[in-house]
């Protein structure tokens, strides 16, 4: 065990972590931020996607100790302090881009990363960029719509 210090949704946090603890487990079990979900064990589903230093990362694919000194944003940290939804969250709601909600946090975090770090160019590009996030409910149709609307709102 060793202590790590990192920024979580804007606040500085110091915690003891084991050398084998995955970032996803750390977020859920240690920080009790249960909006980050775990849907697979092969880094395929993307439900655990968070931002590390502003870049989307599947948190099951990173050790907690690797997050030391970094800035972590989870789905809980995306909306404004007063509760106003991030434009991407609002777009998912307006476009019915979620059903059961389980893939949603990862999907939204990936979508925000896409818009911020790569830009939205076409529907085909959005579909390709969401390849690492599985959804079983929506058929992706409304997720793609939401990401394109969210991108406009973020511009």
């Amino acid at each position: 065990m060793g202590a790590i210090t990192l920024k979580v949704n804007g606040s500085t946090v110091t915690r003891e972590v084991g050398p084998q603890t995955l970032l996803s487990e750390f977020i859920r079990e240690e920080l009790r931020l249960t909006g980050t979900h775990i849907g697979c064990d092969t880094a395929q589903c993307g439900a655990c996607t968070v931002h590390v230093d502003g870049v989307a990362v599947k948190s099951c694919n990173m050790l907690a100790v690797q997050a030391a000194g970094k800035s972590l944003t989870t789905i809980e940290g995306l909306a404004a302090a007063d509760g106003t939804l991030h434009p991407m969250q609002a777009a998912f709601r307006a476009c019915h881009g979620l059903q059961c909600g389980f893939c949603t946090p990862g999907m939204v975090m990936s979508a925000v990363d896409l818009v911020k770090n790569h830009g939205v160019k076409s529907e085909a590009q959005v579909r390709e960029a969401l390849d690492g996030n599985l959804c079983r409910c929506t058929g992706y149709h409304n997720i793609v719509k939401a990401v394109m609307e969210g991108a406009k709102a973020m511009a």
């Binding site: 859920r28 009790r32 931020l33 249960t34 909006g35 980050t36 979900h37 775990i38 989870t74 789905i75 809980e76 995306l78 909306a79 939804l85 969250q89 998912f92 709601r93 307006a94 019915h96 979620l98 059961c100 909600g101 389980f102 949603t104 946090p105 939204v108």
Partner: peptide, 21 residues
């Protein structure tokens, strides 16, 4: 009508079984 359940799902406040300890 937009869904009322979306507010909790979009902000990470859903409570799925594994979230309950």
């Amino acid at each position: 009508v937009e869904r009322r359940e979306d507010a909790r799902f979009l902000t990470g406040r859903g409570q799925y079984t594994d979230d309950i300890t």
